[in-house]
Amino acid sequence: MKTAYAHRRILRSVPASMKHRLQAGAAALFALLVIGASIYTFMILKHDPTLTDLRGRLLGASTLHPLGTDHLGRDVLTRLLLGSTQTLGYSLLALGTALVIGIPFGLLAGYRRGWVDRLFMRIADGFLAFPDTIVAIVLSGLLGAGIGNLVLAIVLVKWVSYARLVRSTVLSESQKDYVAIARTHGLSDARIMSRHLLPHIAGHVLVLASLDLGKIILLISSLSYIGLGAQPPTPEWGAMLNDSRPYFQSRPELMVYPGLAIVSVVLLANMLGDYLRDRFDVKKEAQP
């Protein structure tokens, strides 16, 4: 996990405006690289990502296969690019679902207080007691390995942090006079929450979510690596790392490519989180 935050050490000595420019430049360069590679791969080469070709296995880089082929003769670049939609897509799905559950939970607990708050928070504490990896392994054991169950496990663990963050913000914010005045204007509780409280938590949640995105990508990749996530022949980065393991000595780049992809996307997600934190001026406590 330390590598995910390595850029912070490097960027610490750089002034904030310069830092943002550097980060934006790096992100733009990465985006251009991915777009260029995607156009070349999907519009010109048009390889089938799951079609095996044992005669063309473990080939080196060429114009036909810019990153070579894997142990089953599949084009590595095609699988790498498609893998981004798998890894990133499922990470965003898990994150989005956690937000959809966590935000209303936290809003209600913080605004209603009393028994609603106590009940909601005890439920949250119960979920918090289990580490995400353990929940994923248990769920895979109970329901079978697969990306769906992995997403479910991540949602079960992650929604709690959003509920708690939203609750703590709403607890302090709902005590302010403007919320009391909104009540004297006849605004319903739902309207007070959506008009006055949600905009206050949006910044905090966005920052935590972008920082969490990196962690979730790592989690999905690492659990897919040990076979609990995406199943073959799905082109997923963690699974690709696992597939390339036996060929590490002869073709180490097969492990380097998905590894680099994971590190790059996690770094970008964290840079986005840092930028949003500076942008919304969220205090350090909001960091996980």
Binding site: K176, D177, Y178, A180, I181, T184, H185, G186, P199, H200
Partner: peptide, 28 residues
């Protein structure tokens, strides 16, 4: 509710910092 309104001590806390003045004025 319309018949009775309040002005609080601290105007900084009585106005939603994320709403423009016109939006705050239009709410009631």
């Amino acid at each position: 509710r319309r018949k009775i309104q309040i002005v609080f001590q601290n105007p900084a806390a009585a106005l939603n910092p994320r709403l423009r003045i016109e939006d705050s004025l239009l709410d009631p």
